[in-house]
Design a protein around this nucleic acid. Structure first.
Length: 418
RNA sequence: GGAGGGGUGCCUGAGCGGUUAAAAGGGACGGGCUGUAAACCCGUUGGCUAUGCCUACGUUGGUUCGAAUCCAACUCCCUCCA
């Protein structure tokens, strides 16, 4: 099938995870001969990871499934510096407290995909602040500075891009690649890790670490990157109307997460099934054959599988059921995002606009009013175009009012006696 | 330290005394078509107790009947020189 002998590279290859690989034969042999440890670094710039990080997480998942050891590296130290790759502007510096806070949130997610522990191929988590925070400047410069030339550093895309666009690149950021390179070396020393994976934008950084390891310790290290993931229409993964597609259930409900996968473009379905589900390739091939309206079945499978991996099968089923009731029957499913309100407000009529804002469908009355006027709003599935409309007791159905914005966004106002 | 350029709405970016809630594009959202796609077409895109009011063009003052537009100070950023 593929040119690889090892399960690990075979799986990654057939599922479309591999973009660049530094030494295919060498790594393949390593993976066949024994257990390899590989790491991926994660930023701590947000309190939760989003769908964009799912790809690297899945790589670690397959790494473990094929018998190897995943290492998740939290960028507690490097986040203090900020990766300039792919950024036009200097990132805002985060405080140490904020970084730690974010790190706590991010940790939760990994446990759902990886098995942590002390076993041979159990995953471990490390924080590069552990070694970066205590570096001695002069010692560090003397030990590792000679292995980097400015000439080469200038040639890196992340640097070149800034210079060409005449955007500032601070010395702080300029150092980022050195620190990341050092991470690789340090991890190799500490845990025997020999492979670093990451998005294609990390290629340069990873190569740096590889070379540093070779020069300093004579270690044979490997680099593997995944393709930069965009949707067929070119948009970045993981962003949606309401913001990022967070992996934390508190920041994005399983139902909304399910909807995200349900709504992917036709052209992405096959690719996403391979990348974000664990279905076997035969099943995926079958789903890929579906065309026209039938492709919706494949999308549901995608949504179920992806949601199941993250939030559990139970949550996935619920989300599917909620979606089925909402879209296919037009009913008010209980699993919709719901907000409690005081039923006393209905006496004498409750303004439609404020109800919509309360339900979280709009952020301001004006925004809600415009939407009502353009016919986007429905109350219990009946379109209302008068923004002065008042909701009353008679709108309550089974102790809730279903409010809709457009075809896809629904919310329930659930009555609460006070 | 010296010289120049610049800070406009979610983003890019026009405007350079009144007709500016601020061109244009992007993005986003809504409607139509569909399959809860894509593409395409149309609309919306500061807030409010709404034929009116308030807030907004880095900050603070000033000139003026009137300022995003002129002046001053401050501040932040960029480029070049030392």
């Amino acid at each position: 099938m593929t040119k690889y002998k090892s399960d690990f590279l075979n799986v990654l290859e057939t599922r479309g995870f591999i973009h660049q690989l530094s030494d295919p034969e060498g790594l393949d042999r390593q993976a066949c001969d024994g257990t390899i440890s590989a790491y991926i670094g994660f930023d701590c710039t947000a309190p939760s990871l989003h769908a964009g990080s799912l790809l690297p997480i899945m790589m670690l998942y397959w790494l473990q499934q094929t018998g190897h050891k995943p290492i998740t590296l939290m960028g507690g130290g490097t986040t203090k510096v900020g990766d300039p790759s792919g950024k036009d502007e200097t990132r805002q510096l985060l405080t140490a407290e904020k970084i730690n806070e974010n790190m706590d949130g991010i940790k939760q997610v990994f446990a759902k995909f990886l098995k942590f522990g002390d076993g041979d191929n159990d995953a471990i988590m490390v924080n590069n602040a552990d070694w970066l925070d205590h570096l001695n400047y002069i010692d560090f410069l003397r030990d590792y500075g000679p292995h980097f030339t400015i000439n080469r550093m200038m040639a890196f895309d992340s640097v070149k891009l800034r210079l060409e666009r005449e955007q500032p690149l601070t010395f702080l950021e300029f150092n980022y690649m050195i620190l990341q390179a050092y991470d690789f070396l340090e991890l190799n020393r500490r845990t025997g890790c020999t492979l670093q994976m990451g998005g294609s934008d990390q290629w340069g950084n990873i190569i740096n670490g590889m070379e540093l390891g070779r020069r300093v310790d004579g270690a044979q290290l490997y680099a593997l990157t995944s393709p930069l993931l965009t949707t067929s229409s070119g948009a970045k993964m993981g962003k949606t109307a309401g913001g990022a597609v967070w992996l934390d259930a508190d920041m994005l409900s399983p139902y909304e997460y399910w909807q995200y996968w349900r709504d992917v473009e036709d052209n992405d379905v096959g690719r996403f099934l391979k990348l974000f589900t664990t279905l076997d390739m035969g099943e995926i091939a079958r789903l890929e054959q579906l065309e026209g309206a039938e492709i919706n079945e494949a999308k549901k499978v995608l949504a179920n599988e992806a949601t199941g991996l993250l939030h559990g099968d139970e949550a996935a089923k619920q989300a599917e059921e909620t979606a089925r009731q909402t879209f296919e029957q037009g009913g008010a499913a209980s699993g919709l995002p719901s907000v409690e309100f005081d039923t006393g407000e209905l006496e004498g009529g409750m303004g439609l606009l404020s109800a919509l804002v309360t339900a979280g469908l709009f952020s301001s009355n004006s925004e809600a009013r415009r939407a009502v006027q353009s016919g986007a709003v429905k109350v219990n599935d009946v379109q209302i175009k008068d923004f002065r409309h008042q909701l009353t007791d008679s709108d309550m159905q089974e102790n809730a009012i279903k409010l809709s914005m457009g075809k896809k966004k629904h919310a329930l106002l659930v009555g609460k006696q006070v």
